[in-house]
């Protein structure tokens, strides 16, 4: 069997740089927790001037899920809050060569990102 992980997946899994410092943050205006498909993900953000200045994750799941969380954080940081809602699972699937059988797990990340985006937007509006 060939290596089931791409070079990028291995790199992001082995040394994620966007792991949140604490796993026990409550569901606040800047943090969302999702659990489905055997995957658990928490995303949290710091926003300044409409831009996501920090995006952090904590996750439990397969290597592709952990690598995908890191990839998402790297891709979104520095962009407007709306970028979380525009996140396309297909982009991660392609970038990390995620097997089709794991699509559901990446969709859990999409749901978490969108939920965080909506929450951050509400916080900005209020």
């Amino acid at each position: 069997m060939n290596d089931p992980y791409s070079t990028l997946t291995r790199k992001l899994f082995a040394a994620p740089e966007h792991v949140a410092a604490s796993g026990g943050e409550p569901d606040t205006g800047s943090s969302v927790y999702t659990e489905a498909q055997g995957v658990r993900i928490r995303l949290s953000a710091v926003v300044a001037g409409g831009l996501i200045t920090e995006l952090r994750f904590r996750a439990s799941g397969c290597p592709h899920v952990i690598a995908a969380c890191e990839w998402l954080c790297r891709s979104i940081e520095g962009k407007p809050v709306e970028a979380l809602g525009e996140f396309k699972p297909a982009a991660i699937m392609q970038a990390l060569a995620v097997p089709v059988a794991k699509t559901g797990r990446i969709l859990v990340l999409e749901d978490t990102a969108r939920a965080l985006g909506e929450r951050l937007s509400r916080t900005q509006d209020s």
Binding site: Y33, R40, I41, A59
Partner: peptide, 10 residues
């Protein structure tokens, strides 16, 4: 290292 990545439930 994997435990350091784990989130706590909401």
């Amino acid at each position: 290292s994997l435990r350091a990545l784990m989130p706590e439930a909401a």
